[in-house]
Amino acid sequence: MGGTTQTDGRRERSRRTAAKIVTAARRRFVENGYVETTVESIAEAACVSPQTVYYVFGTKPRLLDAALDATIAGDDQPVALIKRGWVDAVETATDAEGAVRAIAALAVAVLARVEPMLEVARRAASVPEVAAIYDETRRRRRLDQRQLVELLAGHGHLRDGLAVDDAADVVYALMSEELMVSLVTECGWSVERFGDWFADTLVAQLV
């Protein structure tokens, strides 16, 4: 019993250390860019040694990947976005519009959170490892979005005649950081206004 308690304690300390490093890395990457950010500066911000950063994450690209994952998820728990509790709002929606609006609310929250980190990766895409991370992040996002569309289709929430493939393409095009940057950053919309427009547009396209 004592050994199990000690092991659990070490795991929790390791988890907290990793989370602290990821938080510091995310802040430094957004402030200074990927290339300009050093492991030493991340370690200083996290109040750990550079050796600890390397021990936990191995390389700076792997740390960027971890920071992106944590930003998308909103925490450091290893649970896929599609398997999180918010899906209950889609599952229990009594009508198609309510289900689509639940998805839209999640999408806007995630986009607002992750857009700065995606911009970090995009700007550093000349680094091969970063380009691979950026591409994989977008690939996983498209897969998650298709699963959401399949969930809607399974509950009969897609409008008649709309194929899952076509709906998934529409969702991928609309649920993008580029669109949010265009309307919020460049056109000056508030995130709330963007969220309302996005939900209305998604309902119009899918329902």
Score class of each variant (00 low, 15 high):
W86E: 04
G161N: 09
P116I: 05
Y134W: 09
L152M: 09
A105P: 00
F198R: 07
V56Q: 09
Q145F: 02
D196Q: 14
I103Q: 06
S182Y: 13
Q147A: 15
W86G: 04
F198N: 05
D144E: 12
Q145W: 02
A109K: 13
D88Y: 06
R27W: 07
E119K: 08
A70F: 08
A66T: 06
F57A: 01
L174R: 12
A19F: 02
H157E: 02
E31P: 04
T4S: 14
Q145I: 03
D196F: 04
R84Q: 09
E136T: 11
L158P: 06
E36L: 14
G195E: 07
D65R: 15
A107N: 10
R123E: 10
A19V: 05
Q77A: 14
D88H: 00
T59V: 08
T17Q: 13
E36G: 15
V90Q: 01
R159V: 13
D8V: 12
T38P: 01
E40P: 03
V100N: 05
T137S: 15
P116M: 00
L162H: 04
T37C: 02
A104M: 02
T23R: 13
Y34P: 01
C187A: 14
F57H: 02
S126A: 15
L111Q: 11
T7L: 10
R122Q: 13
Y34E: 04
C47G: 10
R15W: 03
V48R: 05
H155F: 12
F57E: 01
V39E: 03
V130L: 06
V30E: 15
A132Y: 09
R27I: 11
A125M: 00
L143K: 15
P116F: 07
Q77V: 14
R11T: 09
A199M: 04
A107G: 07
V120R: 06
L158Y: 09
R138C: 06
G154F: 06
A73D: 13
N32R: 12
T37E: 00
V191D: 09
E178H: 12
D200L: 09
R159P: 10
A96K: 11
T5M: 12
R101P: 04
V171T: 07
R123G: 05
F29E: 07
T52D: 00
Y172Q: 12
V184C: 14
E136W: 06
Q147K: 15
G188K: 03
I133S: 08
T52F: 03
R16C: 07
V30R: 07
E150W: 07
V184M: 08
A124Y: 05
T59M: 02
L64P: 00
C47I: 04
D76I: 10
W86R: 06
P128Y: 11
T92P: 00
V130M: 05
L148Q: 12
E150K: 11
Q6W: 08
Y55D: 11
R101D: 03
V149K: 00
R139E: 15
V171K: 03
F194E: 08
R27S: 14
A89Y: 11
L106I: 05
W197K: 02
E115Q: 13
R16W: 01
F29D: 00
Y54C: 01
T52K: 09
E40R: 12
I72P: 08
W86D: 00
Y134Q: 08
S41W: 05
R28H: 07
S182T: 10
V181H: 14
A66N: 10
Y55I: 08
